[in-house]
Amino acid sequence: MTSLEDLTRLVPPPASPPPTDWNAVEALLGTRLPDDYKQLADTYGPGAFCDFVRLYHPHGPTEWVDLTGPMPARLRGQLETDRAGGTYPMPHAPEDLFAVGVTDNGNHLFWITTPLEEPDAWRVTVNQADGHAWYTYDGNLTSFLASLLSGHVHPPVFPDGLLGNGAFFTPSRPVDESTPPAPHPTGTTSREVIRERARSHGYDVPDRGRIPGHVIQAWEQAQ
């Protein structure tokens, strides 16, 4: 039984996920992607496992979870800055990491893209939200999810109660661009929450003053 079969038996996928033109996606990214990921993305579509692990997907409804959007490059740049400044120790070279997911706690999932020309050999690593700790899984993304959601592995950077409500998948709702954006949140607490969550997703946000409009928009769409 394959890892995808294990996963779909454990977590039934939605009925009609959107199709993806993988040739176009790989041409846009300039690299081949692991076959297991493409099969996984075609089976489930964009969404979240246990309302916690959100994989990046070419049809991600916002730039925060779009595989072809700015987040993978933005996060790699932040890691390079951290390494150059000695901010956090990291077990992998930033140039070898490609972000492929995020959790609601601000952890990021990365492919370790070595060897670059053999994407089916890429392993998975996850960082702690503040960057201090890392967990590396010796296998592909689908195998990691199947092991995680079956309870066979539990990264120490993930919360203990992850499987408290069982294993399930929630598809993303498409963003309705005809709907006017929600009013910008006001109040110190709301803005501090936005700043904290934005930084955990790789945005550069000032400690004080105006929060950039694209950051607020991304927050509103995510909500």
Rank of each mutant, 00 (worst) to 15 (best):
F52Y: 15
F52L: 08
V53H: 05
L55F: 02
L55Y: 04
L55Q: 06
Y56D: 08
P58Q: 10
H59F: 01
G60E: 11
G60K: 13
E63K: 10
D66G: 03
L67A: 14
T68D: 03
T68E: 07
T68A: 14
G69P: 11
M71Y: 06
M71W: 06
M71V: 15
R74Y: 00
R74C: 09
L75P: 01
R76K: 15
G77I: 00
Q78L: 12
L79V: 00
E80A: 13
T81K: 12
D82F: 03
D82L: 05
R83F: 01
A84S: 12
A84E: 13
A84K: 13
G85C: 13
G86M: 12
T87D: 05
Y88M: 08
Y88N: 11
Y88D: 03
P89W: 02
M90P: 00
A93R: 15
E95V: 04
D96G: 00
A99E: 08
G101S: 05
G101W: 04
G101D: 05
N105V: 01
N105L: 08
G106P: 10
G106D: 11
N107G: 03
N107P: 03
L109F: 06
L109V: 12
L109P: 04
F110Q: 04
W111K: 08
P115L: 05
L116C: 02
E117Y: 03
E117G: 03
E117N: 12
E118G: 04
E118I: 00
E118M: 06
P119F: 01
D120K: 09
A121G: 10
W122E: 11
W122R: 12
R123V: 03
T125P: 05
N127W: 02
A129N: 09
A129C: 08
G131D: 02
G131V: 01
G131P: 04
H132L: 07
A133K: 15
A133D: 14
W134H: 15
Y135H: 13
Y135T: 06
T136C: 12
T136H: 11
Y137G: 10
D138R: 13
D138C: 07
G139C: 07
G139N: 10
L141K: 08
L141H: 09
S143R: 14
S143C: 09
S143D: 15
F144Q: 12
F144Y: 14
F144L: 14
S147T: 07
L148Q: 10
L148K: 10
L149S: 12
S150I: 00
V153S: 02
H154D: 08
F158T: 08
P159L: 00
P159A: 01
P159S: 01
G161W: 00
G161P: 01
G161K: 02
G161H: 01
L162D: 04
L162H: 01
G164L: 08
G164H: 09
G166M: 05
A167V: 06
F168R: 11
F168C: 02
T170R: 15
P171H: 02
P171C: 00
